[in-house]
């Protein structure tokens, strides 16, 4: 292993901002996509349920 300490790991040989800036944005974008997917599905299911209830009542 090439890292002497946590700080050494975080600084990435002076390129920390560039390396972590890449990884953090990647992680954020993936998390956002997964959250949007779940939200979209539950919204669709809710909408369909409402439509169904409406049909049953009328």
């Amino acid at each position: 292993m090439q890292w002497a300490s946590v700080n050494d790991f975080l600084s990435m040989g002076g390129y920390g901002l560039y390396v972590w800036g890449s990884y953090v944005v990647m992680a954020a974008v993936v998390i956002i996509e997964v959250m949007l997917l779940r939200k979209g599905r539950s919204q669709t299911l809710k909408l369909l349920k409402r439509m169904r209830n409406f049909e049953n009542e009328s």
Partner: peptide, 10 residues
Amino acid sequence: GEAYRIIFIH
């Protein structure tokens, strides 16, 4: 140096 580690997602 260490900057190349971006390759693993790029």
